[in-house]
Amino acid sequence: MAEVLVLVDHADGEVRKTTAELLTIARRLGEPSAVFVGAGYDSAKGVLAQYGAEKVYRIESADVTDYLVAPTAEALAQLVASTSPAAVLVAASADGREVAARLAIKTESGLITDAVDVQPADGGVRTVQSVFAGSYTVTSTVTKGTPIVAVKPNSATPEQVAGAAAEETVEVDISDSAKTARITDRKPKEASGRPELTEAAIVVSGGRGTAGDFGPVEAFADSLGAAVGASRAAVDAGWYPHANQVGQTGKQVSPQLYVAAGISGAIQHRAGMQTSKTIVAVNKDEEAPIFELVDFGVVGDLFKVLPQATDAVKAAKG
């Protein structure tokens, strides 16, 4: 059975949920092999074994870890050449997509980005994507080289299956041209107590209708254990951090439940959340474009609707 390489998405060894999802998908296609780049492996190895990694390739060279994504792509290209995997899976984050694109060029392989489903097909892979700002759903296959697929978070339910996680340290030779952007400082992200936006099962977002008061949005999100997002209008107005923007020029999310409060539903925002499994909107304007997309809509003032919903959730929890 051919290997399927999974680039481990982690922060100093803290493995993100996206990696568990990718290892679950990899088992459909072949034998999952994790590729761990950077420090913190001792914290990660248990999780990788827990979700079925049969082998773990460790890349710890400072020529890779001290620079931005170009050396990672070169290291992966060398690993692809030596292992001939059935596919390479990466998380569809900003860094993941860039690594995937560089890897596709170096290996002269087909690239599929923002896949929401990946299945085996005729000795290769078949993927489902949401494209053109969420206007179309397409099915794609790679016809040249090694299939390289960037998979959106929440595209699979992580399944625990014990793997051997046999370790192999990989020595790589990184070119000078890849080492032109050195990392000079690292700071841990300040903890918010909420789940990571792109990984969350539930996202509650606020827009122009909040008038800058995200209190009801945050309270409702916290009652659900959800992440908080914002529309471009809200972040451009300085009401919420740009890191929380959901949309074509922000983060793309695909949670089980997406709640849009005070968001009109412009195509830019829809492109970032249209693949959510269930969509609920709260808006005073019954003609708002967001209502064309939703599974459930509430025509009303978010400052009245959200506090009632928050109280109801808390009461249901006892």
Rank of each mutant, 00 (worst) to 15 (best):
264 S>Q: 09
169 T>K: 15
260 A>F: 04
126 R>L: 08
277 K>W: 04
196 E>W: 00
308 Q>N: 14
238 G>V: 14
315 A>Q: 13
194 R>V: 06
22 L>Y: 09
170 V>C: 03
34 A>H: 06
98 E>N: 05
14 E>Q: 09
285 D>Y: 11
282 V>W: 09
148 I>K: 00
73 A>Y: 06
306 L>T: 10
3 E>T: 03
7 L>W: 02
206 G>K: 12
36 F>H: 02
132 F>T: 03
114 D>H: 11
262 G>R: 06
244 N>R: 12
125 V>M: 11
18 T>M: 13
95 D>Q: 13
294 V>A: 15
187 K>C: 04
267 I>F: 05
52 G>C: 14
129 Q>F: 07
239 W>Q: 06
288 A>D: 07
164 A>K: 11
179 K>E: 11
305 V>D: 01
58 R>I: 12
214 F>W: 04
87 A>E: 06
4 V>Y: 03
279 I>Y: 08
54 E>D: 14
234 A>H: 02
245 Q>K: 10
316 A>K: 10
199 E>V: 09
219 A>V: 06
234 A>G: 01
32 P>A: 10
307 P>A: 13
197 L>F: 01
223 S>N: 01
16 R>C: 12
313 V>L: 12
272 G>C: 07
296 F>S: 05
306 L>A: 10
46 G>L: 13
150 A>G: 03
183 I>E: 00
69 V>G: 00
307 P>F: 08
